[in-house]
Amino acid sequence: MQINVLVDKKSDEQAKVLRERWYPTTNAYQTRDAFIFNDAIDRFKGSPEDLIDYIESGEENETIQRKVTIKSESNDRLKTIAAAINKPVTTTYRAIIAYTIANLPTTEKEETAEPVGVSQLLVEKISLLEKQMEACNQTLKEIKELTK
Protein backbone atom coordinates (compact mmCIF):
# COMPACT_ATOMS: atom_id res chain seq x y z
CA MET A 1 0.00 0.00 0.00
CA GLN A 2 1.14 3.56 -0.51
CA ILE A 3 0.82 6.29 2.07
CA ASN A 4 1.74 9.96 2.06
CA VAL A 5 4.10 10.87 4.85
CA LEU A 6 6.21 13.81 5.81
CA VAL A 7 9.72 12.42 5.86
CA ASP A 8 12.84 14.08 7.11
CA LYS A 9 14.46 16.13 4.36
CA LYS A 10 17.58 14.00 4.82
CA SER A 11 15.68 10.72 4.41
CA ASP A 12 17.91 9.71 1.49
CA GLU A 13 20.93 9.94 3.79
CA GLN A 14 19.09 8.05 6.51
CA ALA A 15 18.23 5.24 4.09
CA LYS A 16 21.85 5.14 2.93
CA VAL A 17 23.13 4.75 6.50
CA LEU A 18 20.74 1.87 7.20
CA ARG A 19 21.35 0.25 3.81
CA GLU A 20 25.12 0.30 4.29
CA ARG A 21 24.76 -1.26 7.73
CA TRP A 22 22.10 -3.87 7.03
CA TYR A 23 22.69 -4.64 3.34
CA PRO A 24 26.29 -3.64 2.58
CA THR A 25 26.46 -5.47 -0.75
CA THR A 26 23.44 -3.73 -2.29
CA ASN A 27 22.79 -0.29 -3.74
CA ALA A 28 19.75 2.00 -3.78
CA TYR A 29 18.38 0.37 -6.93
CA GLN A 30 18.51 -3.10 -5.40
CA THR A 31 17.29 -2.16 -1.93
CA ARG A 32 14.85 0.72 -2.17
CA ASP A 33 14.36 3.30 0.57
CA ALA A 34 10.82 2.08 1.22
CA PHE A 35 12.15 -1.43 1.88
CA ILE A 36 14.77 -0.04 4.28
CA PHE A 37 12.20 2.01 6.19
CA ASN A 38 9.74 -0.91 6.35
CA ASP A 39 12.60 -2.95 7.75
CA ALA A 40 13.25 -0.26 10.38
CA ILE A 41 9.62 -0.49 11.52
CA ASP A 42 9.77 -4.29 11.59
CA ARG A 43 13.07 -4.31 13.52
CA PHE A 44 12.00 -1.70 16.07
CA LYS A 45 12.47 -3.35 19.46
CA GLY A 46 12.08 -0.42 21.81
CA SER A 47 8.95 0.55 23.63
CA PRO A 48 6.75 3.19 22.06
CA GLU A 49 7.74 5.62 24.82
CA ASP A 50 11.39 5.36 23.67
CA LEU A 51 10.39 7.38 20.61
CA ILE A 52 9.29 10.47 22.53
CA ASP A 53 12.83 11.91 22.69
CA TYR A 54 13.23 11.41 18.94
CA ILE A 55 9.90 13.05 18.24
CA GLU A 56 10.76 16.10 20.33
CA SER A 57 14.29 16.42 18.95
CA GLY A 58 13.10 15.91 15.38
CA GLU A 59 10.36 18.55 15.45
CA GLU A 60 12.72 21.27 14.27
CA ASN A 61 13.95 19.20 11.29
CA GLU A 62 12.73 20.11 7.85
CA THR A 63 10.32 17.66 6.27
CA ILE A 64 9.10 16.96 2.77
CA GLN A 65 5.98 15.14 1.66
CA ARG A 66 6.67 11.84 0.01
CA LYS A 67 4.58 8.90 -1.10
CA VAL A 68 6.07 5.69 0.27
CA THR A 69 5.15 2.07 -0.13
CA ILE A 70 4.60 0.30 3.15
CA LYS A 71 3.70 -3.31 3.85
CA SER A 72 0.30 -3.72 5.44
CA GLU A 73 1.81 -5.52 8.47
CA SER A 74 4.35 -2.72 8.94
CA ASN A 75 1.59 -0.13 8.56
CA ASP A 76 -0.53 -1.88 11.19
CA ARG A 77 2.44 -1.99 13.55
CA LEU A 78 3.22 1.67 12.86
CA LYS A 79 -0.39 2.64 13.64
CA THR A 80 -0.31 0.63 16.87
CA ILE A 81 2.91 2.29 18.02
CA ALA A 82 1.58 5.75 17.08
CA ALA A 83 -1.66 5.14 18.99
CA ALA A 84 0.25 3.91 22.04
CA ILE A 85 2.12 7.22 22.31
CA ASN A 86 -0.77 9.31 20.98
CA LYS A 87 1.23 10.79 18.11
CA PRO A 88 0.51 11.04 14.38
CA VAL A 89 1.62 8.16 12.17
CA THR A 90 4.00 10.30 10.12
CA THR A 91 5.67 11.66 13.25
CA THR A 92 6.07 8.13 14.58
CA TYR A 93 7.43 6.97 11.21
CA ARG A 94 10.18 9.64 11.32
CA ALA A 95 10.91 8.88 14.98
CA ILE A 96 11.36 5.16 14.34
CA ILE A 97 13.86 5.90 11.57
CA ALA A 98 15.78 8.36 13.77
CA TYR A 99 15.68 5.93 16.72
CA THR A 100 16.93 3.09 14.53
CA ILE A 101 19.87 5.11 13.23
CA ALA A 102 20.78 6.36 16.70
CA ASN A 103 20.66 2.83 18.10
CA LEU A 104 22.48 0.93 15.39
CA PRO A 105 24.45 -1.89 16.98
CA THR A 106 28.19 -1.59 17.22
CA THR A 107 29.04 -5.23 16.60
CA GLU A 108 28.33 -7.62 13.75
CA LYS A 109 26.52 -10.05 16.04
CA GLU A 110 23.99 -7.43 17.10
CA GLU A 111 23.33 -6.41 13.48
CA THR A 112 21.87 -9.77 12.59
CA ALA A 113 19.28 -9.63 15.34
CA GLU A 114 15.89 -11.00 14.46
CA PRO A 115 13.02 -8.65 13.71
CA VAL A 116 10.63 -7.94 16.55
CA GLY A 117 9.00 -11.03 18.02
CA VAL A 118 5.49 -11.82 19.10
CA SER A 119 6.20 -10.85 22.70
CA GLN A 120 7.15 -7.29 21.70
CA LEU A 121 4.01 -6.98 19.58
CA LEU A 122 1.96 -8.14 22.56
CA VAL A 123 3.58 -5.53 24.79
CA GLU A 124 2.70 -2.82 22.25
CA LYS A 125 -0.90 -4.06 21.92
CA ILE A 126 -1.28 -4.27 25.72
CA SER A 127 0.02 -0.71 26.08
CA LEU A 128 -2.46 0.52 23.48
CA LEU A 129 -5.35 -1.37 25.09
CA GLU A 130 -4.51 0.01 28.53
CA LYS A 131 -4.64 3.56 27.19
CA GLN A 132 -7.91 2.86 25.42
CA MET A 133 -9.39 1.31 28.58
CA GLU A 134 -8.39 4.37 30.62
CA ALA A 135 -10.12 6.62 28.10
CA CYS A 136 -13.23 4.41 28.11
CA ASN A 137 -13.36 4.36 31.91
CA GLN A 138 -13.02 8.15 32.03
CA THR A 139 -15.85 8.55 29.51
CA LEU A 140 -18.02 6.12 31.46
CA LYS A 141 -17.34 8.05 34.67
CA GLU A 142 -18.34 11.33 32.99
CA ILE A 143 -21.54 9.79 31.64
CA LYS A 144 -22.47 8.42 35.07
CA GLU A 145 -21.92 11.86 36.61
CA LEU A 146 -24.21 13.42 34.01
CA THR A 147 -27.02 10.96 34.79
CA LYS A 148 -27.01 11.65 38.52
Rank of each mutant, 00 (worst) to 15 (best):
M1L: 01
M1N: 01
Q2Y: 01
I3C: 00
N4F: 04
N4M: 06
D8I: 03
K10T: 11
K16V: 04
L18M: 11
L18N: 03
R19T: 07
E20S: 14
W22E: 04
T25I: 01
T26K: 09
A28H: 09
A28K: 11
Y29D: 15
Y29K: 15
Y29A: 14
T31S: 10
R32K: 15
A34C: 09
I36V: 15
F37N: 03
N38F: 01
D39W: 07
D39T: 08
I41Y: 00
D42M: 09
R43N: 07
K45F: 02
K45L: 00
G46T: 03
S47D: 14
S47H: 10
S47A: 13
S47T: 14
P48R: 03
E49W: 04
L51Y: 02
I52K: 11
D53K: 15
Y54H: 10
Y54G: 05
I55R: 04
E56H: 12
S57Y: 08
S57D: 12
G58E: 05
G58V: 07
E59Y: 07
E60K: 14
I64W: 02
Q65L: 02
Q65F: 00
R66M: 04
K67R: 08
V68C: 04
T69I: 03
K71T: 02
S72V: 01
S72P: 00
E73N: 08
S74Q: 04
N75K: 07
R77N: 05
L78T: 00
K79E: 12
K79V: 07
T80K: 13
A82K: 07
A82L: 08
A82Y: 05
A83E: 13
I85E: 00
N86A: 13
N86G: 11
N86M: 12
K87Q: 14
P88K: 14
T90E: 13
T90L: 00
T91W: 06
T91I: 11
T92P: 05
Y93Q: 03
I96L: 06
A98M: 05
A98F: 02
T100N: 01
I101D: 01
N103Q: 01
T107A: 09
E108S: 14
E110S: 08
E111H: 02
P115W: 03
S119K: 15
Q120P: 00
L121S: 10
L122T: 13
I126S: 14
I126M: 13
S127F: 05
S127E: 11
S127V: 10
L128I: 11
E130R: 14
E130N: 13
E130Y: 09
K131Y: 13
Q132W: 12
Q132I: 12
M133G: 10
E134N: 14
A135Q: 15
C136I: 15
Q138M: 11
Q138W: 09
Q138V: 09
T139C: 14
L140V: 09
L140Q: 11
L140Y: 11
L140A: 15
K141F: 12
E142W: 08
I143M: 12
K144G: 06
E145M: 08
L146T: 10
